[in-house]
Amino acid sequence: MDRKLVSVIVSLVAVLAFFLLIVWIGGLINPSLQLDETGVLRFAFVGLGLLIVFVVYLLTRQSKIWEVGTREVVYMAIGAALYAVLSFLFNGTVFAVPSVSQVALRPAVAIPMFFGYAFGPAVGLFTGAVGNMFGDALTGFGLSPQWSVGNGLIGMVAGLALLFKEQKKGINTVLWISLALALIVTAIFFLNRTAPNMMFFDPENNIFGDATISIFAGLSIVIGFLLVLLVRFVFGKNIDVASAVTWSLLGNFIGIGFAALSDIWINGYPPAVAIVGEFIPAAGPNAIFAAILVPLLVGAYASVQRQTGR
């Protein structure tokens, strides 16, 4: 059997295995981490997310970006650990965003974006998925495996940047796709502005219930896109920065979109509520963080490479 195929399958199985271990061990340690009756459905979407990754691999298997060796395994472990710890630090309700579920400002999302772009889609997938799952377990609020897979998709898509031999062509294609998605989502927001987005009511934790998201939050998808567009042209001569931030934006839209839309079936949300109440509050700030933090990480990594001669 092809070595690359085996390594990708092992990576996907490893993600699933870590998920099951976290659910099992976490549930024994903290009852709030036990899955409810939707657990099977949540893992069905985990399987769907991993299947999507495998299909993408099959369609692009000729590319070297899918190679997984000892180096990539080490980066998987480092990336997942970093993302877990940083996610834990930013998951508290002090950073909560009005939404229909537990959504927080998470600058740490730049970690799977960067690791995916720098070390390949398999590394990005593992970093985002396993790191987010561990981070949720450490926080103790509860586990949402389908959202962790969504985080994995963020890193995976960011790692697809090198599929294009002409990276500038790939960047432009991704920008057009991202623009279309941003405009569609923003239109849905304006058509559903009165829908309540905060279903929690817990004054002790500064959650006050039924507050619609602000116009700024609603436009955060467009704001994030414009910031990424600005970075793309400001760093036009630095193809690595331009490519990393652009593909990270698309990964954010796809990964968070997958997670939010899964809650149409898991939590019974109407599509508009899933988009306005979950996708926008999560993906909007993520896009802004991508535009600001991913260039810093790519620049720092390039500096290290120059100093070490790699």
Score class of each variant (00 low, 15 high):
F189D: 01
S32R: 12
G236R: 07
F134K: 01
V74H: 02
N197D: 13
T127K: 14
L20Q: 14
Q307V: 12
G236H: 06
V40K: 05
Q34G: 07
N172C: 08
V222K: 06
N151Q: 12
A260V: 09
R232P: 07
V130Y: 03
G69M: 14
W66T: 05
F43N: 10
A14K: 10
F19P: 01
E72C: 01
K237L: 11
M76I: 02
R306P: 13
F115Q: 09
L138T: 06
V55Y: 10
R232D: 15
M156L: 09
F43V: 12
Q102P: 02
D36H: 12
E72R: 00
I280N: 02
S214K: 08
G120S: 08
F95K: 05
G47M: 13
E37R: 12
I266W: 09
A137L: 05
L181N: 01
G131Y: 10
G120W: 09
N151P: 06
G284H: 05
M133S: 11
I288H: 06
A180D: 00
A282G: 08
I29M: 11
Q146L: 08
A211T: 14
P196Q: 07
V273P: 04
F216K: 06
Y83I: 04
V94C: 04
N206Q: 13
F164V: 02
A80R: 03
M1A: 06
G236Q: 05
F235S: 14
L86S: 03
V157E: 14
Y117P: 15
P285S: 07
A137K: 01
Q305W: 03
V73C: 07
A259K: 01
P295V: 12
D210T: 10
K168A: 11
N91L: 07
G39R: 13
M76R: 03
V10C: 09
L59P: 00
A14I: 13
S262T: 15
G170Q: 03
L153M: 10
P281I: 14
E72Y: 00
L219I: 08
S220W: 09
I275T: 09
R193W: 02
A96T: 01
A244I: 06
P145W: 04
A108V: 02
P98V: 01
V294R: 01
V228I: 10
V23L: 01
L227A: 11
L105A: 05
A104N: 15
T60C: 09
K169S: 08
L143Q: 08
A211H: 12
L21P: 03
V103G: 00
R3F: 09
R310Q: 14
I171V: 13
S148T: 14
F235R: 15
M156C: 05
L28C: 15
A158M: 12
T308L: 06
M199I: 15
F115P: 15
L175H: 09
A110P: 02
G124K: 09
A211R: 08
G236K: 07
F233E: 12
G150N: 08
I188G: 02
V241E: 01
L58A: 04
V94N: 07
A110S: 06
I207A: 02
F119T: 00
L59Y: 03
V40T: 15
Q167N: 00
L28W: 10
G224H: 10
F189A: 04
L138F: 15
N252Q: 15
S11N: 12
A80N: 00
P98W: 03
G131I: 07
L293W: 00
T308M: 11
V298Q: 02
A290T: 14
V94D: 06
L183H: 04
F43D: 13
